[in-house]
Simulated assay, not measured.
Amino acid sequence: MSHGTCRWCASRCWGAALMALLIVLAAGCAVAPPTSPTTPDAWVARQSTLARLTQWQADGRIGVVNGQDGWHASFQWAQQDPTYRIDIIGPLGQGRVTIQGDEREVSIQTQDGQRSTAPDPDLLLEQTLGLRLPVTGLRYWVRGLPAPGPTALLQTDAAGRLTRLEQNGWVIEYPSYAPSSVFNLDLPERIVARRMDLGVKLVIEQWTL
């Protein structure tokens, strides 16, 4: 075989190897598990079990991007239906912000002791601190459930876990889950929610059930 033929073969081999590498890299960049619209029974069973999970605490980190602005903080969310308490530690130099409420009313207390009350937690948080955060929906989305109200568009994996949810103008994705000791359920470990120019990322480091 001539040297020219060898170089041609080597070139083809390198090209094939490069193409294979690109395919592998592209597959590795997927942000969500494979979805399957053909597992309604698994989703129905999982949804019913998650709905019974009404007392829990999630600890982790939150990042919010609003247009050109952004902030990040730690959070502790304790839920005992119908009441909840959310401590956000460190946003915008506020120190600790505490949000407490139920289905009728919510209050926000800042580090300096100022307290405000209103029926709508999302609106109150924005008016008080300038923080846009979908508290009402996240109460359900954080467990991997759609919120009550308008019909949601769902995508699930083979185990019935949500991988993508569209509701109330929000798109929520679930890149990863972590196992829990209750009901033999995997619970969301990372959540990414987007609406127009607003993005919210949650990393849940610990579930307490």
Rank of each mutant, 00 (worst) to 15 (best):
R96E: 05
I204Y: 06
P134Q: 01
G101I: 10
P150D: 14
S74E: 11
V135Y: 02
H3A: 09
D197H: 10
P146V: 07
V24S: 02
T83E: 14
C13H: 10
R132K: 06
R161W: 08
L145M: 11
D41G: 11
V142N: 12
Q111C: 00
W207N: 01
Q114I: 02
G93Y: 04
V203W: 10
D102N: 15
E126D: 08
S11W: 10
P91L: 02
N66R: 07
L145N: 04
V142F: 12
G70I: 11
S176V: 00
G160L: 11
P175E: 03
S74H: 08
T110A: 14
D112L: 10
R139C: 08
Q94I: 07
T83N: 15
V64M: 04
G70M: 07
G67M: 04
R46K: 08
A32P: 02
R190F: 14
D197V: 11
W8Q: 14
P146A: 04
T128L: 01
L125V: 09
A10H: 09
E205K: 09
P134M: 00
T54S: 06
I204G: 07
S116L: 12
A159S: 14
V203L: 12
P91N: 05
T83D: 14
Q127A: 12
I204W: 03
V135N: 02
H3M: 12
A152C: 05
D157R: 09
Y177N: 14
T136G: 00
S11Q: 13
L129Q: 07
M19K: 01
Y140T: 05
R164S: 10
I108V: 15
W141L: 00
L153V: 13
G101L: 15
Q100R: 07
R164C: 05
T54L: 11
P146M: 06
V64Y: 03
W43T: 00
V65Y: 11
D122R: 10
L92I: 05
T98E: 06
E189L: 06
D197R: 10
Q80F: 02
L185K: 02
Q55L: 04
E103A: 13
P119I: 03
P148L: 04
A178L: 08
P119S: 09
G137M: 04
T110S: 14
A193P: 08
I89M: 15
R164M: 07
I86M: 15
V192I: 13
T110W: 01
E189S: 11
Y174P: 08
G101V: 14
V135T: 10
W8R: 15
I108S: 09
T151M: 05
T136L: 04
D122L: 12
V24C: 01
Y140M: 04
R139Q: 15
R7G: 05
